[in-house]
């Protein structure tokens, strides 16, 4: 079993607070060498531009149905050249849009069942752990 952390923050910082988070320069010392080559993944420009990946992918895969059409044995009565794309888009949207009303309906405080709120921290990371709650 791993050890418990030896240090616990004396004061609980507010959620998403940056009080307890070292400055970027300090934190960057702990970035994994392998990850340094992929830090661009976190850039806002890349995040904003990522939408083009599914758009282009959708256009290509939808056009490709004309090259690889449905055969009769594998075609449902509602299938057409973009049916699976629409199912993916609509089904995903339904699931996500339903999240807010469902959350309002079903969410309770974390200790609703009388259990301890914070999970026990059963390991000590060798570098650092920042608690945001």
């Amino acid at each position: 079993m791993a050890k418990k952390p030896t240090e616990t923050p004396s004061k609980k910082p507010s959620r998403r607070s940056t009080d307890n988070v070292p400055s970027m320069d300090v934190r960057d010392e702990y970035i994994h060498p392998l990850s340094r080559k992929f830090l661009w993944l976190g850039e806002q420009k890349v995040i904003d531009g990522f939408i083009w990946v599914p758009i282009i992918g959708l256009i290509i895969s939808t056009m490709a149905v004309f090259i690889y059409p449905f055969d009769d044995a594998h075609k449902a009565s509602w299938d057409f050249f973009a049916s699976w794309a629409i199912i993916g888009l609509v089904a995903y949207s339904i699931v996500v849009i339903s999240a807010e009303p469902l959350f309002r309906l079903l969410s309770r405080k974390e200790n609703y069942y009388g259990e301890e709120v914070e999970p026990e921290i059963i390991v000590a990371p060798k570098v650092e752990v920042h608690h945001h709650d």
Partner: peptide, 18 residues
């Protein structure tokens, strides 16, 4: 099969776009 690959990609790209 070409159609299986293509339709599955449609589904996944549709979800990612959403």
């Amino acid at each position: 099969t070409g159609n299986h690959v293509v339709t599955q990609l449609q589904l996944l790209f549709g979800a990612i776009l959403a």
